Amino acid sequence: MRPESEAELADMVATASAPLAVQGGGTRGMTPDGQLLTTSGLNGITLYEPGALTLVAQAGTPVAEIEATLAAENQRLAFEPMDHRGLLGTTGEPTIGGVVAANVSGPRRIQCGACRDFALGVRYVDGAGQIIKNGGRVMKNVTGYDLVKLQCGARGTLGVLSEVSLKVLPQPETETTVVVSGANDVQAVRALSVALGSPFDVTGAAHLPKQGQTLVRVEGFEASVAYRVSELTKLLSGFGEISLKTGREVSATLWVEVRDAVPFHGVDGDVWRVSVKPSDAPELVARIGPTDAIYDWGGGLVWLLLPAGSDLRARLGDLSGHATIVRADDETRDALGMFHPEPAPLAAIGAGLRARFDPRGMLNAGLMNTA
Rank of each mutant, 00 (worst) to 15 (best):
L244V: 06
S40M: 10
R190Y: 02
S275K: 14
Q35N: 11
E222D: 13
L215I: 13
E257A: 13
R354H: 11
V168C: 00
F118L: 08
G34K: 07
D83H: 09
V202N: 04
W303V: 11
V148S: 09
R259H: 11
V285S: 10
V218Y: 10
G269Q: 08
S198L: 07
L196V: 10
E49Q: 14
V326H: 02
A102H: 01
V160P: 01
L305S: 06
L244H: 02
G129T: 15
E249Y: 00
D296M: 09
E175P: 00
V262H: 10
G289L: 14
G34V: 09
A71E: 12
D296H: 07
G44V: 02
Y295H: 03
V267H: 08
D334M: 05
V194D: 15
A191L: 09
S17G: 07
S198G: 13
L312R: 04
E67C: 03
D268E: 15
V125R: 02
L47H: 15
F239K: 01
G238P: 08
V168K: 00
V168P: 00
Y124S: 05
G29A: 12
K245S: 14
I325S: 02
R2F: 00
T143C: 08
G51C: 06
G92S: 01
G247K: 06
T157S: 04
E231S: 14
L53M: 05
A206Q: 09
V138R: 00
G366F: 15
L47D: 15
R333T: 09
A191Y: 08
T157A: 02
G106E: 05
G350M: 13
Q213H: 14
I242H: 10
T39G: 02
Y48P: 10
P3L: 08
E175I: 03
G98E: 03
A348F: 09
I110V: 15
L312D: 08
V142P: 10
G121D: 10
Q111H: 11
V189H: 04
D318P: 12
G352P: 00
Q213T: 10
A371C: 07
L169M: 13
A351Y: 08
V142F: 11
S320T: 14
L312V: 13
V99F: 11
V100C: 04
V262M: 12
R123M: 05
A344E: 14
A252P: 00
G247H: 07
V63D: 04
E65I: 00
R137N: 07
K234V: 13
G129S: 15
D330G: 01
V225Y: 13
D146V: 12
E231K: 14
E222N: 09
G86L: 10
R217V: 08
H340V: 03
A223M: 15
A347Q: 00
A205K: 00
L192E: 05
A119W: 03
L236D: 01
W297C: 03
P32F: 05
L120R: 03
L9A: 04
P345C: 04
T38W: 02
P3D: 06
R315H: 12
I349M: 11
I110S: 13
A68V: 01
T177M: 13
T246C: 03
T61L: 05
